[in-house]
Each structure stands twice: as structure tokens, then as C-alpha cells.
Design a protein around this nucleic acid. Sequence first.
DNA 1: CGTCGCGCTTCACGAACTGAAGTAGGGCGG
DNA 2: CCGCCCTACTTCAGTTCGTGAAGCGCGACG
Lengths: 136, 136
Amino acid sequence: MATDQSCPVCRTAEIVCGKWTLLLVKELAEGNSRFCELERQLTGISPRTLSLRLRALEEEGIVARHTYPEVPPRVEYVLTSKGLALVPLIEDMRVYGSQWLGDECAAETAAVLGSDPALGSDQVLGSDPALAEVAA
Amino acid sequence: MATDQSCPVCRTAEIVCGKWTLLLVKELAEGNSRFCELERQLTGISPRTLSLRLRALEEEGIVARHTYPEVPPRVEYVLTSKGLALVPLIEDMRVYGSQWLGDECAAETAAVLGSDPALGSDQVLGSDPALAEVAA
DNA sequence: CGTCGCGCTTCACGAACTGAAGTAGGGCGG
DNA sequence: CCGCCCTACTTCAGTTCGTGAAGCGCGACG
């Protein structure tokens, strides 16, 4: 709030600095769209925080919320194009994390690639079907 | 802390999610290295937070602290290569901020480019002398 | 002698986030 | 038919994170 509004980095930082925001965008980019799905993927998030974050992002125009008045009531959250524009940032974070932060994941992923492709999902963001879908 | 350690994005997020972290790295990348310099650039940060953040980043190996036992005692903070690797992220944030977040800065910057180059300093990060210096 | 700048630390306060529980409506197992 | 699970949340109390103001030791400047 006290940050310099004339600087685009600061404006982005204000959106992005929330603890779960980027992780949440990542999950949405990977195609998870329902509340409890996100809650399960983001191990440790409290439903309150998830709810708050989703609402905030919705207000920012980064996610869109679709309520289906079915039984059981289904709610889906999707990234808007403004939200999708954050994906390169997440890609950079993945690169940074792999390169500089003890990368048990890379080893694990490499081992997994031959046996269980399902677990490799978070390292193919660049070719994620959800992205192609929204980009089209 | 509760985040999935097997995911590089999560590991990066834990470093990056602090409110001022990225802004601080940005200032350091632009060549500001002294405590009070950073304090002035990051309008609104409390010295306590700055101190805490610098210490945390030092522990992470992202900044290096150099104390010169001169009169007056001077302290300089510089990005390590691990810290410099965060710069692309900041670049992405600048791009995002310019493209999607009400960009008074771009107009301002464009106007400034012809009249007062000093104020344009934060948009030439890619060719900042500090970067070339540390990369060399 | 008083005030300034530097590089912090301390303190009290508020905002953000957590963890556990509750809610409302329905499904499904025993 | 009873109780437990599922979805999508909300509520509450408690912890952690960040703020704003003040202070401190030191030397310089006026």
C-alpha cells in the first residue's frame, strides 16, 4: 500500500506477495479449478485463506468464478488472460527453484518419468492443455 | 513451511512471498547497497522489516553483507549470483505490471526518456552496470 | 552544545495467515 | 434410519508477519 505506484514491479509485487497467490495461480494454470481440488493440491492452506485469496484474485480480474447451481453445487475458478499472463513468472520460479534451491524434485521427476507420468504434471506447464485451451 | 518441498515453484515461492523481498532484490540489482539507501528507495518499509529481510536473504545466500569497519561504519549489501538469478523474475514482473496493471509508469517513462535519463534508471535493468559487474 | 545521519534494535499495534470446528444440503454404507 | 463423507464455504481463537514511532551509540557538522 505504501509502495511506489509509479513502478510496475511494485504494482505486480502487491498482487503477488500474498503467501499462496502464485501457488494458487500455478494450480489454476495446471487445470485444477474446483475449491476442494485446490485445497488438496495446496497442502497446508486453510480454506479461509483459499477463499480470501480467490475472492481477492477475482476482484483483481485474475480469476473468473463460475457457479453451477447443480446438485451438488459446483464452483469452478479459471484464470482470465490477465491471470494467464502470470504464468511466465511461475515458469521463472520453477527454473530458479530447480537451479538454485536443492532440487530433489528434478531427480525425483527424472526417476518418475519412466514409471508414473501422472506425478510429472507440474513440470510440463509450458505444454499444459489448459494453456493452449485459453490461448486459443 | 507446509508447502510441498518437492515442487521447485513452492520452494521459490517461500523465498519470494515476503512482502518486500522482490522489491528489495530489485533495488539491490539496481545498485543500491546501503541500508539507508534501501530504506529510502523502498518508501514505506520499516527499518525492522528491512533488517529482517536482509538477514533472511543473507541466510539464504541471496545477498552478501560486507561490513567496513571505517568511520563511520559502512555496511553494504550485494546480490550473490543466487540473488542475481532472481532478476529475470523481476523483469517478468515489470512486463506484467506494465501490460496489465494501469501503466502510468510507461507513459511517464516514455516522456522522461527524452528529458531526464536519471529517472529512467529502473527500466534499463537488463543493461544495468551492476549486473555486468557481478556477472563478470 | 545540539542536532544530523548511519545502522540498526525495541516496543506496541494491526493485518495476514493458521488450524480446528461448524454449517447446509445431499449421497452412501451398514 | 443413523451416522459419516463430500462440497464450498464461514467462524473463531491464536500465531506469525509487518508497521510506525521511538531510541541508541557513534562521529560529524554548525
